Simulated scan of single mutants.
Amino acid sequence: MTRTLYLFCAAAPPVFDVARVVEDAQARGWDVCLGLTPTAALWLEPNTDGLAALTGHPVRHTYERPGEPDPWPAPDVVLFAPATFNAVNQWALGLTGTFVVSVAAEALGWGVPLVAAPCVNAAHVRHPQYDRSVETLRSAGVHVLHGADTAFPWEAALDAAEEAWRPAAAP
């Protein structure tokens, strides 16, 4: 059975690990579609052709043109990692100015499991909107990871995506 993971990345330093993360997800049996914020796409621009070859899908940061078919299969899980302060707040507020935030917002209505792993500095975490945004996403069913680890929790994020995908046990 093929399972499709939409891996959405914003521009934070952990995005530079994305090739390894894609390989880890594929080793877990995921078909990975990689979406980037515009700044993350700029940061990874020298590697996007290689990332597309690795995933077998175009790396996207914009929508397809009207009339063009969607180049990605439907997702089974959406994992937004790293999700920056900006991305978390835009997603929670429904401000869909970028492809990945817009698709993540739509996914709330699709009933697809959603996981977010923020990468936010301590000053941004203290901003009053951040807690409200995290609570909004959680109340909408998004599993938001937080931790005190110094390293970005890629493995925990993939574990959470795996757990979110598992169907509920039958009664």
Rank of each mutant, 00 (worst) to 15 (best):
H124Q: 14
G67C: 09
F85I: 06
R126M: 06
A123T: 12
A83P: 04
Q90M: 11
P118K: 01
L42E: 12
T2N: 12
A19N: 04
D24H: 11
M1F: 11
T37A: 04
Y130S: 01
L36G: 00
L108E: 11
C33P: 10
Q129I: 09
A87R: 05
V144E: 05
A104M: 15
W110K: 02
A92W: 01
V134C: 02
A19V: 13
L95W: 12
V88N: 04
P13Q: 03
R3T: 13
W165L: 12
R60G: 10
V142E: 07
A87H: 00
D17F: 01
A74Q: 14
P38F: 08
T2R: 15
A157L: 13
V103K: 14
D31K: 13
E162P: 00
V77P: 00
G94F: 08
H143Y: 03
P66M: 07
D76A: 05
L158I: 13
L137W: 01
Q129T: 10
P128W: 08
D31M: 14
Y63S: 15
A11F: 02
E64Q: 15
V125W: 13
A170Y: 04
P13K: 01
V77R: 06
A11K: 04
V115S: 02
P66T: 12
G97I: 12
Y6I: 03
G147Q: 11
A151D: 14
V115I: 07
V21Q: 15
V88R: 05
V125T: 10
Q26K: 12
V144K: 07
V112E: 00
W72G: 00
R132V: 09
M1A: 15
V21K: 09
P171G: 13
C9Q: 02
A116W: 02
G94M: 04
A52F: 08
V100I: 11
F8N: 02
V142Y: 06
A170F: 01
D24S: 14
P82L: 08
F8I: 07
E162L: 15
T39H: 13
R3S: 14
E163D: 10
G29A: 07
N86G: 07
H127N: 13
E135C: 01
P73V: 11
P14R: 10
D17N: 06
V100W: 10
R60A: 04
G67H: 10
P113H: 01
R65Q: 13
G56P: 12
P14H: 09
V120D: 03
A52Q: 07
G50H: 10
A10C: 15
W43N: 03
